[in-house]
Amino acid sequence: MSKLTRFEVASTTLGGQVSQFLRNYYIYFVLIAIVVFLSLTNLDRYELFERGNFLYERNIINILRVSAPILVLAGAFTLLMVSGYIDLSVGSTMGLSAVIYAMLAINGVPFLAAFAITTLCGVLLGTFNGLLVVRFKITPVIATLITLSLFKGIALLLVMDGVSAIKSMGDLKMPSWFNAYGREGVLLGLPMAFWVAVIVTITLVVLQNRSLLGKYAAATGGNPTAAKLSGINTSKVVFVLYAIVGACAALAGIARSSFMSLGDPLSGDGMELTAILVVLIGGTAFSGGEGRVLRSFVGALIIMTITLGMLTLVPAYYQTLVLGAVLLGAAASNHWISRKDHAS
């Protein structure tokens, strides 16, 4: 019998290791590069930023406060994409949650109760998405486009009588805590909304790395047949993930409505685009299986820094163009990386 040779392990080559390293950590370099770049620019022209250096404490706090909604959503959105599914209704879920939260607050419901009820509503909205996808077997893109329209309609109807959003009016006054959640610093000068996003992200990182759900999400997105053959109830996995995305979209809605001090049904418009942008920047594969919660969190920071930092360089109306270009660029580079992967 011939001598037994060891298998070659594919990624021991230097090139392989470098590409592996880049894939894991490139996103941090991108963030640092953007921050360094912005630190070198002149911020004097714009109100949003303190004069002088970008790295000035108040600038950082400003960016993180504004970013709270996408930061809280990015992780859950990633897990859903990892399982091979998508939710285009997150913006409408956000808007509807913002309205519900503001209505509760303005009618005297205390903070914790309003917070809990709104989050629960988010879970229900997410479950509804799961129902359309899993039970009615409607393609995820179409199912969540349906609910995008549905949730938005409900949110708009809730604030009907002649106003565009729920805010202090006449006898009804927003309680003082309403604004504090998204704006007033509680720790390191950062508001509660930001810390909730951090807690949610840590929870999701743990879920992704240590729980059945995290592992099964990857299996469902990576090889659905193998997952089913291993006895995994993939429908249940998808269902739970939609519910989590719903909850996180509700938290995003709470954060934004608190930041803006009003319950605006349209406050989440375009959030699905931002979320897709963020997870793609974070290296999540559109086809499922691949993606890390933490990288999407950093991806969200990058997108928000670009969006806000851009204001120092060009007028605001350049935003859509730049983000669209970033989206195409991210999609192309993800594609390029994964194709190299398959070729090796």
Partner: peptide
Amino acid sequence: LGTMMVARGI
């Protein structure tokens, strides 16, 4: 989605 943003962005 990307080209929609690019077109509108321009």
